[in-house]
């Protein structure tokens, strides 16, 4: 356990002095919070136009979402849902950047060999690097969500705000997001165990975000409507995937292969 702690704090000390990583961890959450809050603020000034827009959209598009709501309120709930869904990009993208630099960075700086020469087990090393990438991502997501809630509270009515703190989104942010983070880290660690350039590792690992983008696009074009069932199914599927991927991220981390095949 002490060695895992040492690796976690080492990773944070090292990684957060990397400007690119720091930029991703700070700048991306800022955008993801500023975008919905800015839109909400703007919506207050565009009431008439938005009402017109929502009038153009057929009722089937919103389905159950708009039950008991005015068209304007429905449009706002729809927008908030979409932005909350977009907030779930954070737990996937932030850890990818950290984890991608984690092993490939060690290799390119020639610090991996002396590290592997210490009595640390592969499990401890992978666990340390996983925790180091997971915690900042979850913290950034939850903090962003909290700021988003506070900002939204000041700009929307009680009825609309109730939709934002619906169990659907609380499960999404507090259960699905950490699970997505774990999945993202496990994949990034596996990729960075196999490639020799941190940027390649980052780009390959970023593919993890694609299913989430598909969900966002699906919701925005009315192909699907994210509801509690989808969020629960997402949680279960990602949870199972996490177990499998974490197992393989330890298996794929072959000390000998990493030391002898990388140039």
């Amino acid at each position: 356990m002490d060695k895992i702690k040492t690796i976690v704090f080492k990773e944070w000390a090292e990684v957060f002095k990397n400007r690119l990583v720091l930029f991703t961890v700070i700048f991306l959450p800022l955008i993801m919070v500023a975008l919905p809050l800015g839109t909400l603020a703007a919506m207050g000034n565009w009431n008439d136009e938005l009402s017109q827009t929502s009038n153009d959209v057929p009722d089937e598009f919103f389905g159950e979402l708009c039950e008991g709501l005015s068209e304007m309120d429905c449009a706002q709930v729809y927008m908030l849902d979409l932005f909350t869904l977009m907030l779930m990009i954070l737990p996937v993208t932030i850890p990818v950047t950290i984890a991608a630099y984690s092993i490939v960075g060690e290799k390119t700086s020639h610090s991996l060999e002396p590290l592997l020469a210490t009595p640390i087990t592969t499990g401890e090393l992978v666990m340390g690097k996983t925790i180091a990438a997971v915690i900042p991502a979850i913290a950034a997501t939850w903090l962003s969500f909290a700021i988003y809630l506070v900002g939204a509270r000041l700009m929307v009515t009680d009825t609309i705000f109730a939709y934002l703190v619906d169990p659907l989104w609380l499960i999404a942010i507090f259960v699905d997001s950490p699970l997505l983070t774990l999945m993202s880290v496990a994949i990034a660690l596996m990729v960075s165990s196999r490639v020799s350039d941190p940027r390649v590792a980052e780009q390959l690992s970023a593919v993890v975000v694609l299913p989430l983008i598909m969900l966002i696009v699906g919701q925005s074009v009315g192909f699907i409507l994210i509801d509690q069932t989808i969020i629960m199914i997402l949680g279960v599927v990602v949870g199972v995937l996490d177990v499998v991927l974490l197992y393989f991220s330890v298996k794929v981390f072959q000390r000998e292969t990493i030391l002898t095949r990388w140039k």
């Binding site: 080492k10 000390a13 090292e14 002095k17 990397n18 060690e106 700086s109 020639h110 610090s111 991996l112 060999e113 002396p114 020469a117």
Partner: peptide, 15 residues
């Protein structure tokens, strides 16, 4: 029980 100085001894440069 063994110490090793590797051929290219990388360190954590930012620390």
């Amino acid at each position: 029980n063994v110490g090793i100085l590797t051929e290219t001894p990388g360190m954590y440069d930012r620390l």
